[in-house]
């Protein structure tokens, strides 16, 4: 009980503070860098930068057909755990209540046993992504500590969440506290590693799309 109070009180406060501090630091630190003007005459019919960026963000949701074969596993597995994470995080009743307590906004939740099933699939998908990273020569070569830390702080909340709900490996309040602490670890690591792609993917896809759309090229 003490641990639970610690995890959802001081630990959570600290984690959210680090998350906000680091995320804003990194985002603003990047966005306020010098901007190089692109003065090339855009092709006629170039969409506005915002429209170009938006279409780029959308277009990159699915690979070009020719790349699908070599990227099929990564793409499908990526979708499975991203959607799985979204469902587990956003549509589990206790999580909705947590967000409500924090931000005052709420939305309907899915049945708990449905979320549990989704979480189990998500955990499996995350494990598969780790196995792929360790066995695929390209991914293994380019992986860094960040990749493994980011994986761990994503996987652990899923695992401890499942354990807490299913009463595996400990008492509920202890597992709940550990679950919250792993979420704290996720929040603390988030700004400093690749988890930031949750924000950066929009900027990265967007900037490239603006460049390519003004050339009339595909993104």
């Amino acid at each position: 009980m003490e641990l639970l109070q610690f995890s959802r009180g001081p630990a959570l406060t600290f984690a959210i503070a680090v998350f906000l501090l680091g995320t804003l630091w990194r985002l603003i630190g990047i966005l306020m860098l010098e901007r190089r003007r692109v003065d090339a005459e855009a092709r006629p019919g170039t969409p506005t930068p915002l429209a170009a960026a938006a279409s780029g963000v959308l277009a990159k949701m699915w690979p070009h057909k020719t790349f699908l074969k070599s990227s099929l596993f990564s793409v499908l597995n990526g979708y499975v755990f991203h959607i799985g994470l979204a469902i587990s995080v956003l549509l589990f009743a206790p999580h909705v209540l947590f967000v409500k307590s924090l931000l005052g906004i709420s939305w309907p939740a899915l049945p708990s046993n449905v979320v549990l099933a989704v979480a189990v699939i998500t955990a499996g998908s995350l494990l598969a992504s780790l196995v792929h990273r360790l066995t695929n020569p390209v991914q293994r070569l380019i992986s860094r500590i960040d990749d493994y830390v980011s994986w761990a702080v994503t996987f652990l909340p899923v695992l401890t969440g499942i354990a807490a709900v299913a009463h595996i490996g400990g008492r509920y309040e202890t597992l709940l506290a550990v679950h919250i602490l792993t979420v704290c670890a996720f929040l603390i690591w988030f700004p400093f590693g690749k988890l930031m792609h949750a924000f950066l993917f929009v900027l990265s896809r967007g900037t490239t799309a603006i460049r390519f759309k003004q050339r009339g090229a595909e993104v």
């Binding site: 109070q5 959802r8 009180g9 959570l12 406060t13 959210i16 503070a17 680090v18 906000l20 501090l21 680091g22 995320t23 804003l24 630091w25 990194r26 985002l27 603003i28 630190g29 990047i30 306020m32 009743a93 206790p94 999580h95 909705v96 209540l97 947590f98 409500k100 307590s101 924090l102």
Partner: peptide, 25 residues
């Protein structure tokens, strides 16, 4: 609700956000 946080300090978090923005700038 049990899932609610236990005393997350809004001023502290606000201060962290301001500090982060300032540090980024």
């Amino acid at each position: 609700p049990l899932a609610a946080h236990a005393g997350v300090s809004a001023p502290l978090i606000g201060a962290a956000a301001v500090a982060g923005a300032a540090a980024g700038g």
